[in-house]
Each structure stands twice: as C-alpha cells, then as structure tokens.
C-alpha cells in the first residue's frame, strides 16, 4: 500500500534539478523555456527545484568539464534515492563539437550513470518534455 502510494506520488511530481556542466547555454535556455507558458511542463507535475536535496531528477546539460567533474559527483550524491539523470543535448551525450578538447570529458555518462538521453543541438523544449515523460513510463513499469 505504502509503496503504491510513494510510487504514485513519485510519478505525479518528478521534481527536477537543472545542472549546467559546461554547456553553451543553448540547452539551458531550452530547459527553462520548457517551464514557461508555451510548453509548460508543470502540467505533468514537473517543478524546477533549486537544490539537489529536493530533486528526483537531475537534468544535466553540457559535456562535463574537468572542473565540474567533482561537483557533478557531489551533487549526484546529495540527491536522495531513487534518483534519475537525464542527459540533455548532444554535448551531454557525447561531447558534440567539444569532443577531444583538453578540458572536456565528453559526456555526462563518463562521470555518473545516465537514465535517459535526449538528443539535439540544442534540444527542443518538446524533446525535453518527451524525455521526462519517457523516464516516467520507465518508472511505471
């Protein structure tokens, strides 16, 4: 009964933390644009949270720079279980144009485990929503 209830509430209110790990800002504004009236992810109960301790889902953008690596791990550890990571954009997936640069690790999955990849350079807000909804379906069954 209790697990059913927690699962239900988890599905209805996936709170996200937006984390930039060296992205060019394009994916970041598209993630924010997904929160605004045209796309409005709040109708799925998705809310942008300020601290990792309140979040269920970490939305990561950017190719993971060396400087951000330790911070990324720390933020991942601060997020309470169960936690999920969405890699948003081509950079977060593989490094995009920055692949091979000396200060770039080339993808979020080099540092922390990733559940959903959303392609695009930059992603469209619709794609972000699609990614989150796919994650919710994964949770369901």
């Amino acid at each position: 009964m209790l697990t059913k209830l927690t699962n239900w509430s988890r599905l209805k209110s996936p709170w996200i933390l937006h984390l930039n790990t060296g992205a060019c800002n394009a994916c970041d504004i598209e993630v924010v644009a997904a929160l605004t009236p045209r796309f409005d992810v709040e109708r799925f109960g998705i809310l942008l949270k300020a601290t990792p301790r309140h979040a269920d889902v970490i939305v990561c953008t950017g190719p993971a720079t060396r400087q951000m690596k330790d911070r990324l791990v720390r933020i991942y550890e601060q997020t309470p279980d169960p936690k999920f990571v969405i890699a948003v954009g081509a950079c977060a997936m593989s490094g995009c144009v920055y692949r091979g640069a000396y200060n770039v690790l080339g993808g979020i999955d080099q540092v922390i485990p990733v559940d959903v990849y959303v392609p695009g350079c930059p992603v469209r807000p619709d794609a972000v929503i699609d990614g989150v909804v796919k994650l919710l379906n994964k949770l369901k069954g």
């Binding site: 930039n20 060296g22 950017g62 720079t65 911070r71 640069a101 000396y102 200060n103 770039v104």
Partner: peptide, 11 residues
Amino acid sequence: LGYNHRGLEKL
C-alpha cells in the same frame, strides 16, 4: 571562473 572552460580556442 573556470567551471565552464572547455578549451574552445585550442579546438
């Protein structure tokens, strides 16, 4: 600074 440094000029 430096959290977002990617080494673009070198690339």
